[in-house]
């Protein structure tokens, strides 16, 4: 890239431009003047990313972080410069203020929806799916039927069972856990069944020549070989768990919970609270996914997809 003079001046420029745009907004000037300066700041950030990816390798974590930063600057400056009504899109700073000032409500909702509903349902659903796959393992006939039926059911809009399960298990977190468990069951079952088939006949023959029993073959060969598939299922289910718990609350819930809060605050047009709740959901979802990914890295360090460098 010609004319590119190193990352530090560009970074300083980006910070200065952002500060300038915000200062103008605080002064009360709106319209294109602050927005244009904000755009220049975003451009500087994009140049930083471009400079970063010129080097060999993919640039690590910096480019995505910078892109997120650029979007936040654009959001904040854009909503304030053009005075977008808060009922359509509140500025980032308003969301941050609301987030900080209602930590207790957010925590209570998080516990109700994520810890009680999503997490317990996730454990029950994934556990049941895994155990069912193991149980069907002795019968190849059963598996031949279970795999297509499970695949079919995994693609179904299982979320539709939410009203039924809310009717059966009541409004509190038990019904949310039930929805999550049903949603997690089939992806987990299908992935585990596929994983248990992942060994080839050469490896199984080797275990036979060692006179290994069924249990030994399972524990020492087939379960480790199935681990990448099992973790794939676990990862798919992290997203499903949060979705299931939140959507189930639309069908009835006690007066706390993330889904309840979102649907009531939308009704009151308090969008900053809704966004704060979404931030919680995003953080919880990403952290959940991240933890499962770390567990996967620890458990399947030998697999080619985990190799680095």
């Amino acid at each position: 890239m010609t004319g590119y003079s190193g990352p530090i001046p560009t970074a300083i420029g980006a910070v200065l431009l952002s500060v300038l745009a915000l200062l103008m907004l605080v002064e009360g000037r709106t319209g294109f003047a602050p927005f244009g300066i904000g755009l220049l700041a975003v451009l500087a950030i994009l140049m930083l990313i471009a400079g970063r990816v010129q080097r060999p390798g993919r640039g690590g974590v910096l480019p995505p972080v910078l892109l997120g930063l650029a979007l936040l600057v654009l959001w904040e400056v854009g909503t304030r410069a053009y005075e977008v009504p808060a009922v359509i899109l509140p500025p980032v700073s308003a969301i941050a203020v609301r987030f900080a000032s209602s930590l207790d409500i957010l925590w209570q909702d998080f516990v109700q929806t994520f810890v009680k509903g999503a997490l317990s349902g996730y454990i029950i659903g994934c556990g049941a799916g895994f155990l069912t796959a193991l149980a069907s393992d002795r019968s190849p006939f059963l598996q031949r039927g279970l795999l297509p039926v499970g695949n079919f059911l995994a693609a179904m809009p299982i979320i539709g069972t939410a009203p039924i399960l809310v009717m059966w298990f009541g409004f509190d977190w038990q019904s949310k856990a039930a929805v999550v468990a049903v949603m997690c069951f089939f992806p987990m079952l299908v992935n585990t069944v596929q994983g248990l088939k992942a060994t080839d006949s050469m490896q199984r023959d080797l275990m036979r020549t060692y006179a290994a029993s069924y249990g030994q073959t399972l524990v020492k060969l087939r379960l480790p070989a199935a681990a990448p598939f099992v973790f794939n299922g676990l990862k798919i289910c992290t997203t499903l768990a949060l979705i299931g718990a939140i959507v189930a609350e639309f069908f009835g819930s006690p007066i706390r919970g993330m889904g309840f809060r979102i649907s009531t605050e939308v009704g009151r047009l308090a969008l900053d609270m809704v966004w704060a709740e979404i931030v919680v959901a995003a953080l919880a979802g990403s952290a959940f996914y991240g933890v499962v990914t770390l567990l996967e890295r620890a458990a399947t360090f030998w697999h080619p997809s985990q190799r680095r460098g």
């Binding site: 990313i49 970063r52 990816v53 993919r58 640039g59 974590v61 480019p63 995505p64 910078l66 892109l67 997120g68 979320i159 992290t238 997203t239 949060l242 979705i243 939140i246 959507v247 993330m258 889904g259 979102i262 709740e277 979404i278 959901a281 995003a282 979802g285 990403s286 959940f288 996914y289």
Partner: peptide
């Protein structure tokens, strides 16, 4: 490639249905 893909992945860990 370097800046977008992680966000595409992160976007899916957000329960969009909540939004």
């Amino acid at each position: 490639d370097a800046s977008f893909m992680p966000w595409a992945i992160a976007s899916q860990t957000i329960p969009i249905l909540a939004i």
